[in-house]
Design a binder for these strands. Structure first.
Lengths: 333, 333
DNA sequence: CTGAAAGCGCTAACAG
DNA sequence: CTGTTAGCGCTTTCAG
């Protein structure tokens, strides 16, 4: 089988304890023997058995990255950036385990023994039972992207309400008054926040939003397309539409051009997220950037210090969104 | 601490050995005691300690999913589909560990002890040392997406050459003769295959491709944009462009419209991959679908039977690509 | 059908 | 500074 510390011990003429200590750089061992033992380990191509370490140290070297779901409602870009963000900080220090919360029928297997820490990229308040379970199981948790009531757990997100407020204000500043909203997926907190920011901007500027301008959406292309189509059939269609994410904005643009109209000449469209392709579609999308990768990185960093130093500093962190002005909105008189 | 089989044993008045057997459904135990023990386990909310199991069973319950890189050159959609594909088959039977090969400076830690199996989504022949290492370490491996010489290891991919051939043939059938190519990222086998399929179609139809029609690319939007810009400055620009992936095709379309021209009226564009947004951009992209999710699923299934039943059936599998006709190519006389 | 004992590879008192 | 011993939680002979 593979080589163990006992093999090394035999060759070095010491006890396996000494080998263990030498390899873990214990101050109890003389430099001389340390070097000798390490040389032998190197030679034999020794790799520690992590199962054994885990068993005795009570650490798994696993870091969980959980999404609400891997099946639907999670955009590919979002997913990608989150994984990248976390991965750049853990590199090969931990195993990054990616899962959908809905992969589990029972959370029994989610224990402190199998996860040293968990990052939850939360898109829905349906995730709460999972988060509660993790906390109850004493696993250090960082919740990203969605605000969570429970004070005392790491919580990093972007200020989405402010982002939507920023977007809506921009549309108003461009002279628009008949502004429609295509909402995010029902039950997602982000959908609610964005809608709130939008409405707040309208209220602040004294603009009343007709009920028929408030359209449902699912965060996917399809739903943006369908809702836009309906808006176009209104007796008095809007002059601008704020879509709660970029994918729906693309769907909306498609619906508009299908009808023989042009963006932004006949109708202005805004998105939210600034996904990778948003800059390259035609017209390039005016949108709001949510710093997912940054959020993920920040969350991972804090979680690790938490795990490794047992710290407990837990103020919610809001990272700022940024207005990205491109070509899909035009100024009207 | 958490509950162990010994706790259960005590409560049930049996030895921990019996508990272990009962929980693992050993035929040596009477139905009666099995039921009794399981009830108690349930009651105590027992979860096995996987580190301990791993140590004695010599299995880690980890399945590695390795990409060439998580940093660049991997499109978000590709990534997403691959993870989904694998995840749907493993669910909670294994831990899915997602990593970039370039996260590792040394492959020392990649051992049979820490991975029961590895899926490599390979995009470059630079992955070969990693694959060789895994094979040498006796880890069951499935290589997806790229053909691999080593017979005897699982290998699933799409037939990209055929896909590109299909695409090019389609362009020719639509009457195009001045056809340009924007290539994929250098060093990626897929880039080579797609180019080959393209050239073969040209050869078969007796069309010579000017050197100035062969443009470099990096599989990202930027490079599609730049290369297209250059093509437009040619004395005799092409009437159609085949881009080696959809992202570059979007970049190309952007370059064309920036110049005041229209797709497909003035110039036809084809992509490759059929990423999620391809259907919704304007014009909707004519492209070739590569069944990544299917490939990933198929790879995972075969890998698992391999792990669990020690089978050894290893013919390379090619899954068919599909021509997706939309609106970005027009017929010319 | 059940139990006693050994051991997987490693770390951590405790004793020198 | 080094070694002896025990034990993490589990499975697996081997004996009843």
């Amino acid at each position: 089988m593979s080589v163990t510390i006992k093999d090394i011990a035999k060759l070095a003429g010491v006890s396996h304890t000494t080998v263990s200590r030498a390899l873990n750089d214990s101050p109890l061992i003389s430099m001389e023997t340390k070097l000798r033992i390490r040389a032998i380990a190197q030679e034999l191509n020794y790799t520690p058995n992590f199962s054994a370490k885990s068993l005795v140290l009570d650490r798994s070297y696993n870091l969980g990255l959980f999404f609400t779901t891997l099946s639907e409602g999670t955009s590919a870009g979002f997913f990608y950036e989150a994984i990248r963000g976390v991965n750049t900080v853990i590199r090969d220090r931990y195993h990054l385990i990616v899962k959908g919360i809905d992969d589990y029928r029972s959370f029994q297997a989610i224990t402190r023994k199998s996860f040293d820490g968990i990052v939850v990229v939360s898109q829905s308040r349906d995730d709460q039972p999972f988060i509660d379970h993790a906390v109850a199981a004493q696993i250090p948790v960082a919740v990203l992207n969605r605000e969570v009531e429970d004070k005392g757990i790491l919580n990093i997100m972007s200020d989405e309400e402010q982002g939507a407020f920023q977007a809506a204000t921009y549309l108003i500043d461009q002279g628009h008054r008949r502004i429609a909203l295509i909402e995010g997926r029902k039950g997602f907190k982000s959908a609610q926040n964005r809608k709130e920011g939008f409405l707040q901007a309208m209220r602040q500027r004294g603009i009343t939003v007709k009920n028929e301008y408030l359209m449902p959406g699912m965060y996917d292309l399809q739903s943006g397309f369908i809702s836009m189509k309906q808006l176009l059939e209104l007796a008095e269609p809007p002059t601008a539409v704020f879509c709660c994410n970029d994918e729906m904005a693309l769907g909306a643009i498609k619906a508009i051009t299908d009808k023989g109209l042009q963006v932004p000449k006949d109708l202005s469209v805004m998105g939210f997220d600034d996904t990778v392709f948003s800059a390259f579609v035609t017209p390039a999308l005016t949108t709001v950037r949510r710093p997912i990768e940054l959020i993920a990185r920040e969350g991972a960093i804090r979680l690790l210090t938490n795990i490794e130093q047992k710290e407990q500093d837990h103020e919610p962190v809001y990272l700022k969104t940024e207005l990205i002005i491109r070509d899909s909105v035009r100024k009207i008189n």
